[in-house]
Amino acid sequence: MRGARTRGAPITGTVRAVLWVAFGLFFLFPLYAMADFSTRDLIAGGRTLQAWTNLVTDDALYQAIVISLLLAAFTVAAMLVILVPTMIWVRLRAPWARGMVEFLCLLPLTIPALVIVVGLRNVYLWVTYFLGESALTLTFVYVVLVLPFAYRAIDASLSSIDMQTLAEAARSLGAGWATTILRVLVPNIWPGILSAAFISIAVVLGEYTIASLSGYQTLQVQIVAIGKSDGPTSVAASLAVLLFGFALLLVLSLVTRGRHAADETSTNPSGVERVVA
């Protein structure tokens, strides 16, 4: 990678070291504090893992974890089924729609989740009318939330292959569209699909705004609810989610290592510029 390498004067070395330590303290100390706080025994003193065992033994929290994991899986599946064929089709057969699809995919960056949830009430009256009252109906709106992230990840992969040639070769050998997409194109954009899936999982597990204001008990909603009476358990669950997200993105950056050196995904595993926290 082209780096503006600044070496030489020993004074810079000292400044750099001091800055690294300062940033390290600011960012790592709260994480350490979470680990410390969640293992403290407030009554008897000393250490306890009670807060961490609560993650599986507390019924409400465990249910919420299951729901959030299911939501993550459903969102990834729906996102891939909807987005991948659309993006391939737009590049191969309907180039006139490419600008529009990109615009729509990136639109959620400009429209905050909070705005969506305010306008969502009428839509959800219909959704619950047809599909019933279940937290899993959040899948649809989560697909929209992850669109910008998933679009950029898949778009980077699609740009790196000669899709026209691959598709023509497959089609001229007699493959239908489904075979062409599933058995020829998808294996070639595997890294992009993996990135899109990982980032979508992280987004769904961290989502609070829409779930809480629609009244569904997902993991994050439950963390806040428990926090009012049992701080350590909430802190333990929060730290678990952060560490899980960190592990996902770190694995992703190792898996996609060395693919385009100048590619955005190499420095920014999510390939994203912004999300509303």
Partner: peptide
Amino acid sequence: SLCSVLAQFGGVALAFAFLA
């Protein structure tokens, strides 16, 4: 990776980080 997590997926967890 840590920056990505904190910047984009932190949300509620960051509030609890500072409470702790």
